[in-house]
Design a protein around this nucleic acid. Sequence first.
DNA 1: CGCACATGCAGAATCGTGCCTTCTGGGGTC
DNA 2: GACCCCAGAAGGCACGATTCTGCATGTGCG
Lengths: 390, 390
Amino acid sequence: MTPLRRAYDRGAMTAAEKHQVSRESASRRARGGSRLSGRAGIRDVAAAAGVSITTVSDALNGKGRLPDATRSHVREVAQRLGYRPSAAARTLRTGKSGLIGLTVTTYGEEPFTFTEFAYFAEMARAATSTALARGYALVILPATSRHDLWSNVALDGTVVIDPSDEDPVVTELVRSGLPVVSDGRPAGSLPVTAWVDNDHEEAVRGLLDHLAEAGARRIGLLTGTSTDTYTRLSTTAYFDWCARVGQEPVYEDYPAHDPCAGAVAADRLLARPDRPDAVYGLFDPNGTDLLAAARRYGLRVPEDLLLVCCSESSVYAVTEPPITTLSLKPGRIGNTVTQLLIDAIEGIGGDAPVEQVMPTDLIVRTSSQRRPPRTTISAPRSPGPVPGTD
Amino acid sequence: MTPLRRAYDRGAMTAAEKHQVSRESASRRARGGSRLSGRAGIRDVAAAAGVSITTVSDALNGKGRLPDATRSHVREVAQRLGYRPSAAARTLRTGKSGLIGLTVTTYGEEPFTFTEFAYFAEMARAATSTALARGYALVILPATSRHDLWSNVALDGTVVIDPSDEDPVVTELVRSGLPVVSDGRPAGSLPVTAWVDNDHEEAVRGLLDHLAEAGARRIGLLTGTSTDTYTRLSTTAYFDWCARVGQEPVYEDYPAHDPCAGAVAADRLLARPDRPDAVYGLFDPNGTDLLAAARRYGLRVPEDLLLVCCSESSVYAVTEPPITTLSLKPGRIGNTVTQLLIDAIEGIGGDAPVEQVMPTDLIVRTSSQRRPPRTTISAPRSPGPVPGTD
DNA sequence: CGCACATGCAGAATCGTGCCTTCTGGGGTC
DNA sequence: GACCCCAGAAGGCACGATTCTGCATGTGCG
């Protein structure tokens, strides 16, 4: 464009051109033609069908009072012209875009770290499925505070995963009036529309009971130093359980984001003089780390050491031996979160904030059974009373 | 609505109400106020800054010729009012939404099946990252032909994964003039803007050479009956390789979408009288299936049977023994596909369709080494000349 | 001194759709 | 025959931003 301007004679050409365009545009508006833009607009359909724009809109959206003959005629013409309503115009007019944001916690430059990968992937898959079933699509957005990106897309609501304390993005979203539903109990007093979380305390209690039933006398904990809700609730539940059964807590913690630190902490835990005879690892890679540490110390699993870790990864079904895992059922959470969000968007359900707690599943494998009864892999067990359905 | 109409007295109420609304709206437009909608509009900023809306738009977008004083003043006021431009209005005016569609192949009702899960997850992660870096966001959409969903979101372009022959959705997208970049060579003669694919033939050649170097005399193939490009190219390369080295092909095929069929086919392959001493499995679960089948027949891996399969799953690093895998590097493909698409959207690069072939990585583990030299896991090997970079 | 030109900014058209309002006949009733 | 009523369809505003056009005001030079 810029290099071309030099060829113009004092801009006269430009002005003429603009005028041309303007006239063309005006006449186009009057006649309802749309040669300029490639796609057919609602005016083209109206002209071709011999009716007004209003009638086309009503016929296609099933809104007005029109005889079926007109409806089908308009629909047929629209079909023939390949008419697709402009999503942008419709969004501008109606205020609804049919888009739901899905925040992903970024670590460095990359979205979602590997440790939470399996959880996130399964959760996102379920959320996508549910959203699509109700006519919405998911937009993947980072939880970082890139304002320009968030404001560049018209969202009807947002699903946030594990919002940190006073998350600026979430705060801004809520303040802008958009429904926000959180996967994970919000840490601070973020006024989210609703949240869904596992019953972490009950999960830990059930899991420790399971280990005790399998013969564990001293159960250790591998946990994180971070203060997020999941870590805090799980660790507290562990201490409470220990107090109740009269066992001295045996635990090591490490910065959960550092994968190397996990292996080191696992080693520390098994090197202690008061070595536990069972360990629960709070994070996904703990299972592998603990297994490796046990090998180094010559401990057999499950004969000398019972093992459970929290993970969604299918890896633990094929390790040697297979490791019992606590599944947070991210799929169920993704479904529920999305349903709640769309309910809020469409005004279904009450205005009161919804707080929903979902059960977990303990997938029992060889590593937590002193006497493996079978060689088959799993035998799902639902710990305690089940609040929800399915 | 309908039941309410009876309550109106000859519609007078309705008319009055509407009139009220109309006047309110008119006065609002005149004064530039925006009490009705919660958020501040560009008119509010203009009024507060004492300038016109043109100046506000130019100042915020760096477009017009304005002194820096005005620019910063307008920006400050906009900041103070918490102004966020309406994405819908901007999209309607400019024709660009900043959104990129990502098709997911649906299987039944659920998006993306489990077998292609790892590939898809990694590819989507990379595509998301690249898109975000260039200011775009990804919208997850199913490859099914739900017209209403696709037309409900304004897309600047689309990434399609492995489009099937004459895919109706892709055909429609291309016809509507949107840039479409495909992950995987399009099967038919779909006129996509660009495509990116692995060098499948070279990958298979390199992999078979690797097995032969490890001592394999008769290499078998576990393949699919489907006619997609990946299966076809890989199988053809296998036959060609066999013809070149003078080996009789030994293969079994099965419907790739049926997981049970894979295990059965693996069993068939190892039960043959001309049992191969090395097998390449074309699909993700083949590694596990072949390992299980080998155990049933009392074959030791890698002593009696060399194993390689194509997979992105990290599971094969911790199986017993770890299995050599061919990685298609979905991350690199996701990056490249997204870059090409955004280039096309923004008019960067030529108009000629781009066809880019990417190398694969053979991750050598114990299962394909007759004499495991080390206990460490991997030793990446780049087969043949490398066309692209990184 | 006057004309050409650059600068700073305001007005208004425009994107395509949805919906609110209005207009027009035709048929029924007193 | 005048009036009322309503189905059916059309007219036009508004959503909120971008951007083109144009006016007013300074400045340099012949």
